[in-house]
Write a protein that binds this DNA or RNA. Sequence first.
DNA 1: AAATAAATTTGATCCACATCAAATATTTCA
DNA 2: TGAAATATTTGATGTGGATCAAATTTATTT
Lengths: 237, 237
Amino acid sequence: MDKLKPDPSLLKPMRMFAGLDAAALQAVMEHGQARHVPKGGTVFKQGDQATTCHALIDGRIKIQHTTLDGQQMLVQFVGPGEMYGTLAMFLAGYPGDAVAVTDSVELLWSVDTMKNLMLTYPQIAMNTMAMLGDRLEDLQTRVRQLSTQRVERRVAYALLRLAQQAGRAVSDGVEISFPLSRQDLAEMTGTTLHTVSRILSAWESDGLTAGGRQQIVVVKPDALLAIAEDLPRPKPC
Amino acid sequence: MDKLKPDPSLLKPMRMFAGLDAAALQAVMEHGQARHVPKGGTVFKQGDQATTCHALIDGRIKIQHTTLDGQQMLVQFVGPGEMYGTLAMFLAGYPGDAVAVTDSVELLWSVDTMKNLMLTYPQIAMNTMAMLGDRLEDLQTRVRQLSTQRVERRVAYALLRLAQQAGRAVSDGVEISFPLSRQDLAEMTGTTLHTVSRILSAWESDGLTAGGRQQIVVVKPDALLAIAEDLPRPKPC
DNA sequence: AAATAAATTTGATCCACATCAAATATTTCA
DNA sequence: TGAAATATTTGATGTGGATCAAATTTATTT
């Protein structure tokens, strides 16, 4: 976890810092630190006192909750340019674990620092609220799906979403660009790895998807979309 | 929907305006309007351009989403002192319908006004983020429950939560203080009114609950808590 | 008070998916 | 390279709860 040289231009494309002038970005950058997180490394742990908030520069982080009875739930995959651990600023502790699924580089700030930055530059707070709003919408979609839709549809939706967030074009379709297990997909969609495996097997024999160990290629997005129906709308802004 | 005389002291106990001085509260109040909403009245509708945000003074409002295929989902019951329609400030439109389940009195502000207030008094933005954070936690709990728990447990949890938020002590227990149908409970917990009815019947014959049409009394909270297990933690602050 | 509408209860049936149980790949490590 | 660990696939079985279908109770309207 080495320190790296921070560069204010990194913040420019981030939604949380949209609309800030160069001086403000400079101030934000000066208060943050950059560091490297190796694959498998833990950024923060569920329940710990929240002392930091984070922006991902490169790599992929997964946020995972564990219930009292040991059930795992995969809350989100964080990609470059996205913030994480922000929510914890306003709660007692981190609501989940943050683990790097690939080698990653992040910026981090102390919670106090970020709160002060928000008070100094209220635009950061406004941007953060918009981000929290989107996450609320996502979760509401998830609740709705769990309440009313069958597993196959939920898995199709999750996969399409991953493809558009972290897809890489390959010869036969779009590949999820980081290691993704059947177990991960199960935890994202509220089912078991067995059911996910069966679904993917069926899709594979119909030519909708391909893949191997911890790796999935979406071959026919349209067909998946037809299954998902409840379409992942392209996010504005 | 008559206009009522606004009184800044109404804002004092509200979380959104915590930590503001008298002058700030005065300013907030001056920009808002009070009005009465009759039982069954609609405050805003899903999909409409979001132009207002709201605080409930008295009564009870339910927020309900309708899916494309007509499925209903009950997102939350709003009680006195709580804000609603706040999220819409940061989204394209209102994510759901807001309907009064009892005669209600609310304050409302235009979105632009509230955004300006937030920029002027960043503490409002900080408070709002904390509230959004709590709602995110709630939704994550709901997703976790839908993913991993049986219906009976989810219904027990929902009922206990309603009892602590809107319970009124009666001779034989704690009564939910507003009309609540089996259908409502079903939409809150991702099941059908039939299943909720069966569960309540079973509880009633075991003496855990009592109730009638659109009305439920929790007779043995401890027994329900044992069923819910995944305990609703009393919210701090 | 009778007629209509809305909410609730209860029974019977069915199936999507969890669970139980192994076998088979694939990767990592000694 | 062989052994151990980790992922994945696939089969067999059971069940929680949805769905279909009425009957019953309670509230509202005329």
